[in-house]
């Protein structure tokens, strides 16, 4: 396949960036999207140009490092995957592909397509944990039976990989899907219920302070989320917050 790539290039956080066109040929449909960018970068290096910086690590869809807004969608046109799992067979010969960084005030660009997502970590510092010491002196793991249904839903919420696609895709750059996934995981488990009220208040306050937008229930985040985190979690967070506020 031969493709035209329109890629956001930006030297560093301070300088202005712009879209730059690149041509790439002999792309195999079996390549992953990132492997296609590897090929482009090798060509750029051999030509003496600066390669395109992009985040990636595990390349199996679990670390959440890869980002990329491809043809107007977070992680590209396929569903239930991260960019590293996107394959070139999703595109056609002669296509023009727009590649942009995840955009949000809370995710400033570091270079080219690399953004700073430490805002997510900061929200977690505010309450994304159960306050239990790691001494191992807890009760036996089977001491509290947890209904399978709750455990499964907690797991579903916990599968969030913190990639930021929800923020990138939301027209308001809202982080509610991310925050609600963590709030839900713990709110559904007896271990987390103890400090559920504190947690939701602290995490939401931190989220607001970091400059994420508000949720207007468009549902785009749920569609683009590589792990299929459900909007139910946001509703649960809304409930938890309301309960905590009225306490």
């Amino acid at each position: 396949m031969n493709l035209t790539l329109k890629i956001w290039r930006q030297k560093n956080a301070k300088e202005k960036g712009q879209m730059v066109d690149y041509k790439i040929s002999n792309v195999s449909p079996d390549m992953s999207f990132l492997e296609m960018l590897d090929v482009l970068n090798n060509e750029l290096i051999e030509k003496g140009d600066d390669p395109v910086a992009f985040d990636h690590d595990c390349r199996e869809g679990i670390c959440g490092m890869c980002s990329l807004f491809i043809n107007g969608e977070a992680h590209g046109p396929d569903r239930g995957i991260t960019t590293c799992q996107l394959h070139m067979r999703m595109f056609k010969d002669g296509d023009t592909i727009y590649i942009e960084p995840f955009r949000a005030k809370a995710f400033p660009v570091i270079k080219d397509l690399v953004v700073d997502r430490t805002a997510f970590d900061k929200i977690q510092h505010a309450g994304g944990f159960v306050s239990v010491n790691t001494s191992g002196n807890t009760q036996d793991a089977n001491a509290i039976p947890i209904p399978k249904h709750d455990a499964d839903r907690a797991f579903d919420a916990a599968t969030c990989i913190g990639c930021g696609a929800c923020v990138a895709t939301c027209k308001n750059s809202s982080a509610m899907l991310f925050v609600s996934a963590k709030v839900s995981q713990f709110a559904l488990l007896p271990q987390g219920k103890v400090e559920a009220a504190e947690r939701v208040l602290n995490m939401v306050n931190e989220m607001d302070a970091l400059g994420f937008g508000n949720c207007t229930n468009t549902g785009a985040c749920e569609v683009e989320c590589p792990k299929g985190i459900s909007l139910e979690n946001i509703a649960r967070m809304n409930r938890e917050y309301l309960k905590a506020s009225l306490k």
């Binding site: 107007g72 727009y98 027209k171 308001n172 400059g211 994420f212 508000n214 207007t216 549902g219 683009e224």
Partner: peptide
Amino acid sequence: LTIQNKKARPIGYAKNNAAANSSFSSRNM
């Protein structure tokens, strides 16, 4: 809300295929 939400993304996308993931009404409330 709208003003705050606009501020949350100072630089927009060159290409945004929002129709792929959300309804017209939800985006244009």
